[in-house]
């Protein structure tokens, strides 16, 4: 392994073509495009159905489930975009997702660094403990978790959503980041030590920048997961002012009835940021996962 070099970053550079940045990619064969077209149609159709459904009214949806909007009713979307509660919930979702992502990275990267670069008794136990967290989804833990949050007076605040999300996000983060940090060649660390750089300083000066692809990946995955999170906020947040977007959709579901068109329009609008965010960083995610799936 002595020849190992900075695996992930190098590979990324070597294969920058992977990102399609070269203008002269050739055209593929028609068969390939055909397959791609079919796949894309299948993946996008249900989402398109939701988006288009927001432009119909309830009666249209009932009478002709597969129809196009006729007439188009953009007012449902307009109404939501003009409502202050939508933007308030948008802000709450953003705060929750950003803080969750930042904290997961801060805590996860430090812990991963320890797991990757230190040798100590209990290291295996620590790794096993975090990995066991994968076996216990938040769905299953919600009742005891809520009682705990209440005892800590964290209900009805975004902190009560953020902290458990960070905790439940740690296992994935650590599994992705540990191999990444292990790929940093020892020589660099040794050189740093010769320069009188302590391991802590090495961590901040070298590890942080070098692990950026992995950090970005886990950050984005956490952001998206938090943005979509439903069950935890549902239990923790009661006050409408603290609602995140997935809870906001409630206002269109009455005691017995439901304004399906508004639900569809609202969900369409609320998924846009996650989609944009993911799209913008999609290539980075591939690069960031590279370390995690390496043999």
């Amino acid at each position: 392994m002595t020849t190992a070099s900075l695996e992930a970053p190098r590979a990324k550079k070597n294969r920058s073509a992977q990102g399609g940045s070269k203008p002269k990619d050739p055209w593929g064969s028609p068969a390939v495009y055909f397959i791609a077209l079919v796949v894309v149609a299948l993946t996008v159709a249900p989402v398109a159905y939701i988006v288009l459904g927001g432009f119909r009214d309830n009666s249209q949806i009932t009478v002709d489930p597969a129809g196009f909007p006729s007439p188009w009713r953009p007012e449902t979307y307009a109404h939501i975009l003009q409502s202050s509660s939508f933007w308030h919930q948008f802000l709450n979702s953003t705060i929750a997702a950003l803080f969750t992502a930042v904290l997961v990275i801060a805590l996860g990267l430090s812990a991963s660094y320890v797991l990757a670069r230190y040798k100590f008794r209990g290291r295996g136990l620590m790794f096993g403990l975090f990995a066991a967290g994968l076996m216990f989804p938040i769905t299953v833990a919600i009742t005891p978790l809520f009682i705990l949050l209440n005892n800590l007076h964290l209900t009805n605040s975004l902190i009560g959503v953020i902290l458990p999300q960070v905790a439940f996000g740690l296992p994935t983060t650590i599994i992705i980041l540990v191999p990444f940090l292990q790929a940093i060649p020892e020589e660099i660390e040794e050189a740093a030590a010769v320069d009188g750089c302590s391991r802590l300083r090495f961590y901040f000066k070298m590890v942080l920048p070098l692990s950026l692809p992995g950090v970005l990946t886990t950050g984005i995955l956490t952001f998206v997961a938090s943005w979509n999170s439903y069950l935890l906020p549902l239990f923790v947040l009661s006050d409408t002012n603290s609602f995140t977007l997935p809870l906001g959709v409630q206002q269109f579901r009455g005691v017995h009835g439901s304004d399906t068109a508004a639900v569809l329009a609202f969900t369409s609008l609320s998924m846009i940021p996650a989609l944009l965010f993911f799209t913008a960083f999609e290539r980075r995610i591939v690069g960031g996962l590279q370390g995690a799936v390496k043999g």
Binding site: G28, A36, V47, M271, A274
Partner: peptide, 23 residues
């Protein structure tokens, strides 16, 4: 495969994964 339009296709294929289960 290196081919034109690949980045668009890739993004679209990932859409369902980014959309929440509730939606």
């Amino acid at each position: 495969r290196k081919m034109r339009g690949r980045s668009v296709i890739r993004v679209l294929v990932f859409v369902p994964w980014v959309v929440s289960e509730v939606i």
